[in-house]
């Protein structure tokens, strides 16, 4: 008798608890729905995972400044173009220029793609400071990463096996590298993969025989950047296109945004001091003339 009574009371408490949780869920979902309605305007970005970090940092800053809600999707350059053409986004972030077919499809749907170059992406080769090698050519780098050059001594360095380090194949950095250096040849199977620029730098910092590639912002602190084809990677050489392993990053819009609109302000954020600081801080090169 007493046990059944206790269990009944216990069940009563359980029911009360379940009811409370359910009520809390309902209330919270209602309040979330109200929150999303609040802001005045809305900008939707979609596309490249390379441009994504810039767009996200821009969005954080922009939302605080203006209250305009900015959402950033990272689904790859191809999807960025697709979403822009289908009208599901205001800005298509792309780490490459639009292909002919994409342009055609856009114009047929009445969308006039306009490209704005917001930053440059330069990929720098780094080695351990104790490594006597100072410069490489793109062919040598390609030879290393495709497994044809296995020892530093083959290219004038010490007698040691090269420890080759690459970004994971999903990163925009890898994409740039594959496009500009590997020319779509397959990377050797002994290459080690690392998931961030910082991790590559950490590996190269304490591995004397290592070579890796990173964004320009990661060429400091205990690693040495190499000249490629005789050009040292700097903001200036990357922005002016003298450095060979570099590419522009685009924001595509449907026509040029209406002047003074939030979209216009967002797309031209890269021209401001703050915008350039943001681009710097996420590891890319701001576009100015670097006099």
């Amino acid at each position: 008798m007493s046990t059944s009574k206790r269990s009944n009371r216990f069940l009563g408490w359980t029911l009360a608890l379940v009811a409370t949780v359910a009520a809390a869920l309902v209330v919270s979902s209602v309040s979330v729905a109200e929150e999303t309605k609040a802001p005045a305007g809305k900008i939707v970005c979609d596309g490249s995972t390379t441009v994504g970090p810039i767009a996200k940092a821009f969005a954080d800053y922009f939302m605080k400044q203006t209250g305009v809600n900015v959402t950033v999707g990272e689904s790859g350059s191809g999807n960025g173009a697709k979403s822009l053409i289908n009208g599901t986004c205001d800005i298509g972030n792309m780490s490459r220029f639009m292909k002919e077919t994409e342009f055609k499809a856009a114009v047929e749907k009445g969308v006039m793609p306009v490209a704005t170059v917001i930053a440059m992406d330069g990929v720098c080769l780094i080695v351990h400071p104790s490594n006597p090698i100072k410069a490489l050519t793109t062919d040598q780098v390609k030879g290393i990463y495709t497994g044809k050059i296995k020892k530093w001594s083959e290219i004038g360095g010490p007698d040691a096996d090269i420890v080759i380090i690459s970004r994971d194949t999903n990163s925009g950095t890898y994409e740039t590298f594959a496009e500009k250096v590997l020319k779509e040849e397959k990377i050797a199977s002994g290459v080690e993969y690392v998931t961030s620029n910082g991790a590559i730098r950490a590996r190269v910092q304490n591995t004397p025989a290592a070579v890796g590639y990173v964004g320009l912002a990661f060429t400091t602190d205990g690693v040495k950047a190499l000249e490629i084809n005789g050009v040292m990677p700097t903001k200036r050489t990357i922005a002016t296109g003298k450095y060979p392993v570099a590419r522009p990053l685009f924001m595509f819009t449907n026509g040029y945004p209406k002047l003074g609109s939030p979209l216009h302000e967002f797309v031209t954020l890269y021209l401001t001091k703050k915008g350039q600081d943001i681009i710097d801080s996420v590891g890319f090169v701001p576009v100015t003339n670097y006099e």
Binding site: T49, G190, Y193
Partner: peptide, 30 residues
Amino acid sequence: GNAAQIPQPWYNFLSPVRTMTATIVSDMGE
């Protein structure tokens, strides 16, 4: 080290290898 290779020789524990879990997580990015 995440290098997708069978080490040479096969018992060489000093060479980088890649596992299934690491492959899934690093290739899932996009």
